[in-house]
Every structure is written in structure tokens, then in C-alpha cells.
Design a protein around this nucleic acid. Sequence first.
DNA 1: CTGAAAGCGCTTACAG
DNA 2: CTGAAAGCGCTTACAG
Lengths: 344, 344
Amino acid sequence: MKTRITLKELAKLLNVSVSTVSKALNDSPEISPKTIERVKELAALHKYRPNPTAVNLKSSKSGTIGVLIPNIANSFFAKVLSGMEARAQREGLQVITYISNESHEREKQISEMLTAGFVDGVLIAIAEETQRKKDFEHIRSIIQYDIPVVLYDRIDFDMPVDKVGIDDRKVFYDATRDLQNKGLKRIGIATSIHHMGVGKARIEGYKEALREDDTFYLANSAKLESLREKTLKMLLEDKVEAVLCSDFDSTMLTYRLAYENGLRIPEDVKIIGFIRGGLAKYLTPSVSFVDQSPDKIGEKAMDVLISRINRKNTGPKEKIIIDTEVVHYESTQFVKKGASLRGN
Amino acid sequence: MKTRITLKELAKLLNVSVSTVSKALNDSPEISPKTIERVKELAALHKYRPNPTAVNLKSSKSGTIGVLIPNIANSFFAKVLSGMEARAQREGLQVITYISNESHEREKQISEMLTAGFVDGVLIAIAEETQRKKDFEHIRSIIQYDIPVVLYDRIDFDMPVDKVGIDDRKVFYDATRDLQNKGLKRIGIATSIHHMGVGKARIEGYKEALREDDTFYLANSAKLESLREKTLKMLLEDKVEAVLCSDFDSTMLTYRLAYENGLRIPEDVKIIGFIRGGLAKYLTPSVSFVDQSPDKIGEKAMDVLISRINRKNTGPKEKIIIDTEVVHYESTQFVKKGASLRGN
DNA sequence: CTGAAAGCGCTTACAG
DNA sequence: CTGAAAGCGCTTACAG
């Protein structure tokens, strides 16, 4: 077993003091070039690396960033995390993940921990339950301890912190307008996240885009069974020509319902979904989707946080919007009457 | 701004020594009940929590676990991470995530960091490139520093560490046998991970299950275009009755190819895939899949690691197999000739 | 029962 | 140019 060598041990081997070794390794101008060389040589030989914990204690930093993730099984958040990790790595920062599972209680526990000084800054996507209960005291408490906080993705909250996310309202406004311009009239929306900030904003965007004589079709429920019923009604009774789906579940469910009821996509109904591109292209038919650039959201959020930690940015809190784009695949294709997209 | 109170400050307020405060907070029998009460009261009032970095330095522990993830966008790993996090949380341990992106170079960098003492133990799923290059020196180097290592999921390597994963060979052996028992003969396998340990094992299991006069049908390529061609040949020319798909890409691709070529699932071809249940149930038709219990793999791996760190387990290294199960959905349903599963 | 001292592994102002 | 000392915030063996 190898054991890590310490400054003290290096000092003894070199017959100099610990301070000299420390300074030499940090290229202090106080130390003679000759000594610096000697010290560095031996350090390299023994693969010396400073004990991170000791450095942290001395500098009153932890060298780590806490990331609060509501639901890691959601590949959006997984991708966001990936972007954060990439940015943190360039800075030599460690990323500690905390998964709230959308639970208010768990989120409070985590926040409590964080105020004890485990991290230099925190990136948060607020849990669903917390949004419902509208209790953000634990987040404010982190801020009070002067630990920089950046909200990501779920940013529609009134809090004195930086925020990085997308323009949820605009996404569905544009998508709706786009479909209208192509001649569609009966456009509906399916959502299982209407009670969350991002969900609300998406619905609003859609609503705003509706023209005077358009009908507002909404299938909303966090309960799958109920969402199934409402969406089915929209598809079969209201006979909508297109459905905007605001999240993974509503997207996939709409696909299932079309499949189960012999509705052809896109011939009978067009669909725009909110799922990741890696999956979207594979669906049968491939589903047009809103590309949120989750990795960019993660990178930018981490970037903003780092500037706050390093006090490179001491200006007023910012709200940063990452561009989105509707990627059109088969599910919004316009095909000639009678023709079919499907093979055979 | 609130600032965290230290032992020293508490001591001053109480007019006792730092050592007394420390002992009192740790319920030392050396301290009088009265003093303990006084100290704890004030500590609670000021919400005192020991500085984690200081505690770590003193105890020569970091209180953190490093988790190496090859690809977080793969929801399997996201779920595994979730299980790890849950277990770590119960132990008061922090989870630091490192994403290798299947890169050998990055994995080496990370390993190098880890030997500097950032973590008390490491959970690793070895990167694809590392498997190809067969260079595991960096992993051995972690072990040499006496940092406990547990391999998870990708465990088919000869290394003196604990391992937690599934029996990849058995999964496809059983699946093949099951389809055979139901009367199928021409069973094929599609895979984009045949060059990885888990991929190889899955192919082997399938191969072993083949009987004397069965043909071995294999569509394998890490390149999507090539996999597409090979799978297409298997479906259209070889006319296989079932395809075992060993990973996300091969599963989704096989679905696409059936769709594009008018093959009905399961009427014309049955499919067993390797994707998560949350997605499997939504596909059209829903796809029968191998449930790997990723959260259990994560929890167990963390559990084993913790026993090693605490020296509760000093026995020989173990290999722990988590049970899997084929969940049957529509894609393996046996339907009467002429009948169709699809709506309409 | 309480406190002074040493020490975990570093960094840095200060003295020589 | 080098080193002794103090200190980051704790814990703990030891003395009183």
C-alpha cells in the first residue's frame, strides 16, 4: 500500500522547513530557484499532492459545489448535470449531488446540511412539492449564510438569486404560432406538470398564441389515469389536429393513445413533445421536440455560480435564458391526403 | 448575512474552554450533565454545526464517496446513482460524481485526483475506451493507495475489488430459452456493445441457449449505420422471429426498422429490449424488457463500499449478483394468426 | 469535572 | 533566502 506523503515528510527528507517546502511548491518568489527545483523534484518523485482537506480548512473553502436535482431519472436533469460537471472540472471543483426526489422534506434536510459549510455554492432546481407548498424558507436560509445560489431550469420564482433556464412561455407560443401558420386550427396541449412553474408558463405561451376564434384545449393532470382520459377526449372527441406535450409523460402517453386508438401520427394528429433528442429520433414515428440544450443550461448555471463564488460578478442578480429550438421530425410532417408515412 | 459560529466563539460566550465545549457536544462522560446542557442549549440557539472540513482533517476522512459514471445520459446510470445517493445519505456521506464520458483519458485524470485524497472510497463503472485499451493501471493505482474500490455494472474484469452487477450471461440465456419454449426457432441478437464486457456476456448467454440446429443470428456494430444494415438484414432476409436487444440503441433501432419496413411487433417479430421500465411501457407497442433494478445495484454497491470503508467487512473480495427479470409487455405477446394488436 | 496542549496538513505574515 | 510561529476548526490524550 502506498501512502500519501506530507509536507512535513518532504521537509525532513530535504532537510528544510515545512514552510520552505510549501512556498517552493507554490513558486513563491521568496525561495531560491535552486531550492524550488530540489523541492519540486522530490515532490514529483513521491507524487506529492497537497491534502485537499487541509487546503480547504486553511482557505475556508470546500472546493465543492452542491447540485440539487429533483429527479435524476429524468434524462433532462441527467444532461444538465453532465454540463455542470464539465464546467466544474475545468475549475478544479468537485460536484456533490443531492437528489430531492421532488420531496419538500428531503430538500429541507439537504439545505440544512448545506448551510453547515459542505459546499462553496449551490445549484438548485426546486422540488415539485416545494413549489406546491410555496415554502422556500430553506432556500432563503442558504442565501443568508452567504452561500451563492443559482436556480436552474425551474426559475419562475421570486428570489434574490441568479437564474438560468429557458423561456418556457415563448417555446409554446412559437410552437403554436408555427403550427397555425401551417394551417392548423385545433391545437391542444397535454401536460402533467401544469401545477409547476415551468408547466404553467408553457400553457400560458400556448394560450397567448391562440387567436380569437380558436378553442383552448387542455388535458392536464399529474395523475396518469386522469391525464389519459382527458387526452383521449381531446384526441377523439375534440379531434385536435395537433398536441403540444409539455413533458416526458404527456408526450409518451399521447403516442400510446394514438397507437391504441388507431390514430396515425402525423397524418391524423401532429405532435410536438418535450423529450430528449436521443429518444425523439427513435420513436415510431420520430417525434418533433423542443431542444432545451440541457448541457448548456448546466454549464451556464455552473458558470454563473463560479463567478459569484470568485466575486468576479458582484452585480445585480441575473436571469439568463438559454435558447431553445423546435426540432422537426416525422410527427409534425405534412403529408398528402391519403398518403402514409408508415412503411408497408 | 448569518455567519457560522465556531467552537471557540461558543466557548467564549460560555466562559469555558474549547475542549469542554467539544466534549459536551459529543456527550463525553467526562463532562458534567449540567455543563452539557448549558453548552447544547447555546449551540442549538446559534445553530452550531461542526465545520465539516475541520472534522474531516482531524479524522483523516473526507466523508465523501466518489462515483465514476461513464455516461449519465444513459438512464440506467442515472438510476444507479439515485440508489447510491439514497444509501450514502443514510450514512451521512456525500456523493461526488465524476463523468468519464466513456473516455480513457478522462478516467485516468479522475483516478489521479482521487488518489490525492478527495474521497474515502470509489464506485466505478469502467469506461468503454478503457475496456478497449485494456489499460486498468489507473484503477490499480487507486487500490494501491488503500482507497476501497467497488466496481458496479461493468464487472467482468480481473481485479482485486468487490463487484456488484447482474449476471449478463444468464439474462439472455434465460430469455432465449423462454422464447424457444414458446415455440420460436429463429432468434437473433442485436447489439451495439458487443465489444464491452457486458455485451460479450449477453451474446454468450444467447449463444449457449441455442440448440444444435439453431442458427446464430447476430447484428453487431457500435456504428449506428452499420448496425442498422445488419439488423435490417436479420429482420428482412433472415426473417428472425424474435430479436434480443442488448442495449438502448439496438432496442430503439430495431423498433424503428420494424416501423419503417412495415413489420408488425409482435405479430411479425417479437422483441426483448434493454431499456428502463419507465420508457418500455410507453413504446408503441410497449416493449418487453430486462429489468436490471438499477437502483438496487447502486444501493448494494454503496453498501458494500461502506462496509469496506468502516472495516466491517475485511473478508475476501466479493462478487454480488443482483437479480434481473424479464418483464413481458406487448412486444413478446403471442397473438392469434390474423389478429392484430394495434388499434383500429 | 475542566482546561491546556498537541496535532490533523496545510499557508502565510513576520523575523532573522 | 530560510525558518519559526500562528492559525484554519476541530478532537483527544493527558494533567490538574
